[in-house]
Design a protein around this nucleic acid. Structure first.
Lengths: 249, 249
DNA sequence: CGTCTTATGTCTTATACAAGACTAATAAGC
DNA sequence: GCTTATTAGTCTTGTATAAGACATAAGACG
């Protein structure tokens, strides 16, 4: 592997230097981002990658270690290393924090109310870093937990990255799985901002609660491997029988 | 180091086996938990620990790697490895998730309203795993962000682990720093459960908002290195100008 | 159909060397 | 003689590599 070397020892600042294993990691991440290695598929063995890049297996392993820690890869001893896929179990653990008060964790059901393609409004364009006049696909759906409607959710994604998403019938329950499987878009991170607000009338009617009742507003911005914004999602959640679980460690 | 060996190869399940570096890690964690290594202090070098336990430096390093990833240690190349202390910066990053809407992150001021020692009620005893009749110390305080009161907070800790806490004057702003520095209790993890609720009259008056206004209720249970419950904290937060930030990755 | 062998992964441990940081001795300048 | 800058030494963590142990699955074989 063509290694980035440090600047001459004479005194130059070594600004561009990164350890070898990070250079390896970056190249491997790029392969996933480019779709060369697809979600759920196995990747070459540590020795194969090491030989290809002319580094030792231990160096590759350290790169894979970090990627595994970031939930990008899944390893199975004796079998191989796989690109993590957004299956329901992973979503439930990593991205879905609303839980029944009795503690049972489950993947919510979805009932899609509307799907449309339209020009992004100012707020959508700002949050998704879109140019003026770009299109988005909007999805509005209700989500149920343990049989009861718990969430009213508005989603916006850039239409350019998800062609014909508005015509996909039916819209699957697990959206991130669709993003990865059909469009090769990997949701790597998300930032959620939470507030307590009075429930608007429209959503209250849909969720079967009194208007003005306090609900949890979750504003989520999801980004892909390159840090590009991929999805903006605003969820209104009942918290009379549910709660948002956050582990600090 | 007396290594745990695997069961005979004849076919027994290798239930008790753990890798060497995890055995090392566990021993080192125990030293911190026992107060042998105190918060903020430097620990012996990797080679010293390796020699003492009769393992290689790389094995010690792997144990320290994991402990660093868990925010238990802080490393400084060329200097040494230190036991992480609960200074304000770390708290802000790890345990304090409420942020001003304009994005500025800061450590909140505190105004203590009441401190008392009393027998634990049923709920406190349950949450803190205390025996019937045990005592707790209760603290009620207001916390301000950017000059405005943002949080009304009720805290309960086992009196047995924090003797004379109710007589400590004044109660410091950074409680976890006090737990570690004066009582040798390290808060390692915390679980927060969030709900949107109408603000009770008493707290509304204290925070200067209308009663019944939606506020964020944060129910936090903090545990030490051994998983023992250390503190139960219920915070009511205004979210009209603040929000709870949660990074999913 | 069950058991053993073998091939091929990842996992663990060990070792060597590089890079950063502090200390103290040393030399230059006033 | 005192101060200050430099430099060598040494101790620390960081990086890279190699070799053997362990886990798994598939095929050979009875």
């Amino acid at each position: 592997m063509p290694v980035e070397r440090k600047a001459g020892e004479g005194g130059g600042a070594v600004v561009g230097f990164r350890p070898l294993y990070r250079q390896v990691k970056e190249r491997l991440v790029r392969r996933i981002a480019a779709g060369e290695w697809q979600a759920g598929r196995i990747i070459p063995s540590e020795f194969q990658i090491a030989a290809e890049l002319s580094v030792s297996q231990g160096t590759v392993r350290k790169a894979l270690d970090e990627m595994t820690a970031e939930n990008l890869l899944v390893r199975r001893q004796g079998v191989g290393t796989f690109v993590a896929s957004h299956d329901e179990d992973r979503i439930l653990f990593q991205f879905f924090k609303l839980t029944r008060d009795d503690g049972g964790r489950e993947f919510p059901d979805s009932q899609v109310l509307a799907v449309e393609r339209a020009r992004a409004n100012a707020e959508e364009a700002a949050r998704l870093s879109l140019a003026r006049g770009s299109h988005v696909v909007r999805i509005h759906r209700l989500r149920s937990l343990g049989g009861a409607v718990a969430i009213s959710e508005h989603i916006a994604v850039p239409a350019a990255r998800f062609p014909d998403l508005e015509r996909s019938e039916p819209v699957p329950n697990n959206l991130y799985g669709l993003y990865g499987g059909r469009y090769g878009v990997t949701v790597a991170r998300a930032t959620e901002s939470l507030k307590a607000v009075p429930c608007p009338e429209a959503d209250a009617a849909l969720m079967g609660i009194a208007p003005g009742m306090p609900v949890l507003l979750i504003d989520r911005l999801a980004t892909d491997l390159d840090g590009q914004e991929v999805e903006w999602r605003v969820s209104l959640c009942r918290t009379d029988r549910f709660h948002y679980l956050s582990d600090l460690k």
